[in-house]
Simulated assay, not measured.
Amino acid sequence: MRRLLEQWLTADARLRIATWAAAMLLLMALCGLGGIRPGYQALEQQRISLAASEQAIKEQQRQKRALDRQLNAAQRNLPALVSVNFSAMTTGKLPGITLEKWQPEGEFAELVLRSKWLAVPALFHALSRTDARLKSFSLTSGDGVLSVTLRLEADHEK
């Protein structure tokens, strides 16, 4: 090794400069590749992440199309919702419900019923199928029977 160093030191100046330049270029290339490699890995990770995101978006679009098809099929199979005109007498004839008072006041009306607890859901279900809009209601209990007060707005009375 010592002999090689002595030969280089005693060699022509052009050879020493060329050797030195080649060594520097080799060193710069090695340092440059070391700096490029982490950047390349980061770009590769971004590419993988973008590919996964693109795949997730495609899957979401596929699910949306499937749900749209299901929704369209359900809408085609859904029977037409027909609302009937509200009648206080019909409401009073529901099982477990007795009409106590019906008082129309302009566009609003007050309906007072006596009911059992189990008949209340059927009452609200029956009201949902009419053109009357429920503005407010109250429930009070006494003697095992409920007093149901409904404040309604009926479309057909306008």
Rank of each mutant, 00 (worst) to 15 (best):
K58C: 04
K58G: 12
K58L: 13
K58F: 05
E59L: 15
E59A: 15
Q60E: 14
Q60S: 13
Q61D: 07
Q61S: 09
R62E: 05
R62I: 03
Q63H: 08
K64A: 14
K64N: 13
R65T: 10
A66I: 12
L67Y: 13
L67V: 08
L67I: 11
D68W: 13
R69W: 02
R69S: 10
Q70R: 15
Q70T: 06
Q70E: 12
A73V: 04
A74V: 04
A74F: 12
A74S: 15
A74L: 13
A74R: 10
Q75L: 14
N77D: 12
N77R: 15
N77Q: 10
L78D: 02
L78T: 10
V82P: 00
V82E: 07
V84C: 02
V84R: 15
N85F: 06
N85Q: 08
N85C: 09
F86T: 02
F86Q: 01
S87F: 11
S87L: 07
A88E: 09
A88K: 11
A88V: 04
A88Y: 01
A88F: 01
M89V: 14
T91D: 01
T91Y: 01
T91A: 10
G92H: 07
G92E: 01
G92W: 03
K93I: 00
K93P: 00
K93A: 12
K93C: 00
L94A: 07
P95D: 06
P95W: 08
P95N: 06
P95R: 13
P95H: 08
I97N: 07
I97M: 05
L99P: 01
L99V: 09
L99M: 03
E100T: 10
K101H: 09
W102M: 04
W102A: 12
Q103F: 02
Q103H: 11
P104D: 13
P104T: 11
E105S: 11
E105N: 12
E105W: 03
G106N: 14
E107R: 14
F108L: 09
F108V: 12
F108P: 01
F108R: 12
F108D: 10
F108W: 11
A109L: 03
L111W: 07
L111V: 06
L111F: 10
V112W: 03
L113C: 10
L113P: 02
R114N: 12
R114S: 10
S115A: 15
K116M: 01
W117F: 14
W117I: 04
L118G: 10
V120K: 07
V120N: 06
P121H: 13
P121G: 03
A122P: 01
L123Y: 05
F124V: 08
F124N: 02
A126T: 05
A126F: 14
A126Y: 10
L127D: 00
L127S: 05
S128A: 15
S128D: 10
S128N: 13
R129A: 11
R129G: 05
T130M: 08
T130A: 09
T130F: 06
T130E: 04
D131I: 04
D131V: 03
A132L: 06
A132F: 06
R133V: 04
R133Y: 06
R133M: 08
R133P: 00
L134S: 06
